[in-house]
Nucleic acid binder design. Sequence first.
DNA 1: CGCATTTGACCGGCGC
DNA 2: GCGCCGGTCAAATGCG
Length: 268
Amino acid sequence: MEDVLGNSSFFANSFPLQSIFDFSSEGDKFPLGFMELLGAHDFATPPLFDISQQVPPPLKTESPDAFNLPATPNSSSVSSVSSEAVNDRKDDQRKTKKQLKPKKTNQKRQREPRFAFMTKSEVDHLEDGYRWRKYGQKAVKNSTFPRSYYRCTSTSCNVKKRVERSFTDPSIVVTTYEGQHNHPSPLMSRPSLGGSHLNSGISAGAASGLPMQRAQSHFYHHHQQQLPFSSTWSALNFGHNGSIVGQTSFKDHGLLQDIIPSHMLKEE
DNA sequence: CGCATTTGACCGGCGC
DNA sequence: GCGCCGGTCAAATGCG
């Protein structure tokens, strides 16, 4: 499971993404090309394509910056802004659920920043250095494949991810991360996983607590940090025949031209 | 025995 | 107001 990254990486379909996350209404294509989505550019423009389509800007007193880092690595002391909010709400919800006590939280559901990526893989659950527990599975509308919901097993870490196969290309797995790890990867110390590139690459992120967080800001979420993206991704060992679709050269259009539909590129 | 997965039920948000 | 849908819970079950 080492040399999987060479497994024909390319920006395969972009349509599945579009349909899945509906960045924009179908008619309008992307306001930004996929390149921007990947953070290849500095998109200073706000939520043109928030995958969580709900971004309620004025609801909380969170500045975009605060939103950017709901659970900062340093604030792993848990009590950080939005992540905590989510936790509270969930806890509340869980408790009240059985007792049918509908406590109306006035505020809209506050979501963690999310980012998604596509991976060409035969297996659904890709190894990304963290341990995940599956907590749900749902059938996806317009797709024959179910969507699986995972949560980080680390107690204080409420990072979630959902995994589903692309409807249009079953060989592609779409993984959406939500939230940020406030702990280093539990698997990093495992020698078995310690591919050299994994170790070296991920350590930078892990040192700060979260390898994923960097990539996160570069992806679909509209807040961004200037951090090395590709190294992070390559650092992640998406084992099991997995290869990040689009991990490769996004600095120029190269591959993209072949794969991304014209309407994507013409927007630039 | 402890942990992960499965799966049906439940809940809230949203569109009509 | 109602129904649909996405997301989550938690009991039951499986597995190492």
